[in-house]
Write a protein that binds this DNA or RNA. Sequence first.
DNA 1: CGATGACTTGAGCACAGTCAAGTGCAGTGG
DNA 2: CCACTGCACTTGACTGTGCTCAAGTCATCG
Lengths: 228, 228
Amino acid sequence: MAHLAHNHTAEDCVELVTIFQSLSKEDTKTVASLVSDKHYQSGEYIYQAGNSADALTIVAHGQAKVFQIATNGKEQMLRILQTGDFDGEAALFSNKDRTSFAQALMDTDVCQIKRSDFQKLMKTSPELAVNMVNAFGQRIVQLEQQTTEAATSSIESRLASYLLETSAGLKKEQFELPLKKKDIATYLGTTPETISRKLSSLAKDELIEKKSNTLIKILDADGLAMVE
Amino acid sequence: MAHLAHNHTAEDCVELVTIFQSLSKEDTKTVASLVSDKHYQSGEYIYQAGNSADALTIVAHGQAKVFQIATNGKEQMLRILQTGDFDGEAALFSNKDRTSFAQALMDTDVCQIKRSDFQKLMKTSPELAVNMVNAFGQRIVQLEQQTTEAATSSIESRLASYLLETSAGLKKEQFELPLKKKDIATYLGTTPETISRKLSSLAKDELIEKKSNTLIKILDADGLAMVE
DNA sequence: CGATGACTTGAGCACAGTCAAGTGCAGTGG
DNA sequence: CCACTGCACTTGACTGTGCTCAAGTCATCG
């Protein structure tokens, strides 16, 4: 299945990803022809630290987590890739090894473009290059905010923000937590025990309601935003 | 002085900055003609949050700190701009307002290129665009590491890493701290008091020597790297 | 020489991490 | 159909890191 030009998933990828939007029809075709696609089952690794980072990875369908292992062995989640998201910061600028892991959280289709192909493409399509710079810029702003929030806010506040973001992303006030508590914990730089306690605390303050173990309803969004 | 093409500082900027290296001679001239330069005294703000972010900022000579103010009012340092560094993640990809501040830490010369000029330039010079993507990629990797380290390591460990990085950057085992303790504190997400205590602690363990208030000598680099 | 700001040191406290025991649920096999 | 295993999660008790507040020292500069 992989490496077939113009197959269904490859076209999906090209259509899905913001950096490829606003490209000429011709460019779009070229991109599709360079894309290879692959399927991963829940729990499988899409790539691992130490792999040579030689491809841009696009999630065509599914969900994956990207994380690093700190020197002390602790896991730190960097981001969740949803359908349409892509990853390849490191992949595209050097021959260096990857420093992070990506793991499928459900059955997931991804597309990949080789670094060398992509760099060639950028040189011939200024549109694409500009889109790429813009996408990276947004990612940098988002990372800076994550860093700032992690360093200056309490866990409870970060958890509240996380719930608001998740709710906004799904456009629902009531939703299933898309991650295991363990994963939420590493995302927020804390432990599952603390997540559990803080969720109870937020529920006690009537800011959220715990419908079930994984089903959360937001009762007071403004209140959540003001958690210190 | 500002807005004069081909002036001395403008050429400095173009030569200094990695993203402009490996450009054709012609492109280099074009860049230089688009650059405006400005001088800031120690303590002056180069830009502030809320300003429209419409220019790429390059440090031609001097040093500046870039920081954000968290919602709870705490200051978080994002990075130090040294001679040759540039800043403009947000500046270059949208018309959005800035979310961060940049303040000169000494007398500092900066150059600026307007967002619109720069985007035009990228479309005509694929080389530049590729350089830009690569530079952003490196910044993203660095930010991800900063996030991971902040979330998973103790202050003492982060301080140790900071000292090692600073030492490596200056290529000296003995060096003046380039920042006030207050600034180091916000950089590492802590307080001046804690910095003071942890430095004493590292000195007691004979990993460093406090020659004076601001002069540090690294005694045991391997030991520092292993601080938990 | 006094004033200002940077830094240090100390005491008390709170947030959140660790460790440990227990609960609930899903999947497996008898 | 129920016991058993494994895993995610919860809850409790304890501890420690690092923050806050406050007082004191030191250095620089007018």
